[in-house]
Write a protein that binds this DNA or RNA. Structure first.
Lengths: 145, 145
DNA sequence: ACAATAAATGAGAATAAGTCTCATTTATTA
DNA sequence: TAATAAATGAGACTTATTCTCATTTATTGT
């Protein structure tokens, strides 16, 4: 585990430091996206706040981290490992949980055709897209561990 | 124009006040989404900052305003009028412009089927979705006024 | 392995978006 | 038109994020 966080850093020519390893390990602890607050709790002050933000910035720069904002305006962060598939997000408005979801190939194919149309229409070059779904988990949040 | 902002308020049982009319008019000035900063500039201190945020909150509550976050983490706001169609957003990473885009009925239909699958799989009730596309406008930002 | 150099870190100050408070003003209604 | 409730303005406050700079750590060439 510690092995692979070192690998991520060296593969991207980023120097291997303790804070970077600790942050990567905290990120790897949960598969789904997590808030900065979650991270800070996991890190238990082993990494200074300023360093945490700097390390997250470094990881974004080498494209192993994806940062976005949940509907309640909280910054959320998730590790993108090479074997991760393209996926989207499902947000629970009750408990705040964010779940990774994959959509069908058929859907992604149609979406990429739509995107081509939009590129032509607006003279854009589109390099990424995102589908977000909002709702509530019924069933007393059984999904939300 | 001032007429319709009054109508929006009275239709929703919200008292008609000057700040509310001014904010609505500033929102109506541009069709595409705009930042809080844009709004403040348009309002030229005619509405206090605290009032601006309060009015935006009021408008969200009566569902005539949609608030979201652009990829550079800026809060963005757009008026939802009754004759507006369901639409999505295209973000330019160069100039920051956000453009409303409609996708085909065929696409929306397939997406709603995908959503039904996700609802079953995760035992969720999904009530909204959003497709965001990211890129850059080629052609020296000709779209970006 | 070691010294020199560059890069990263910690601590806390600074910034900025958004919220809150409360005295005053404005809209609504009877 | 007066009474009442609601909305506003001004600025203090909060909180997330960024910045600064002195100190520590990693890297590299010998």
């Amino acid at each position: 585990m510690s092995e692979s966080s070192r690998k991520i850093l060296s593969d991207n020519n980023v120097s291997i430091t303790n804070p970077r390893i600790l942050v990567l390990e905290a990120l790897m602890e949960s598969r789904n996206p997590q808030t900065i607050d979650d991270l800070q709790k996991k890190l238990e002050n082993k990494v200074a706040k300023s360093t945490l933000y700097r390390v997250l910035g470094d990881l974004k720069k080498i494209n192993v981290l994806h940062e976005f904002t949940s509907p309640d305006n909280t910054t959320v962060v998730e590790l993108l490992l090479h074997d991760d598939e393209h996926h989207h997000h499902l947000f629970c408005g009750d408990c705040g949980e964010i779940i990774d979801v994959g959509l069908s190939n058929e859907f992604e194919k149609l979406l990429s055709e739509e995107i081509k149309k939009i590129e032509r229409k607006f003279n854009f070059q589109i390099n990424d897209h995102r589908v977000e779904m909002f709702g509530t988990c019924t069933d007393q949040c059984s999904n939300c561990k």
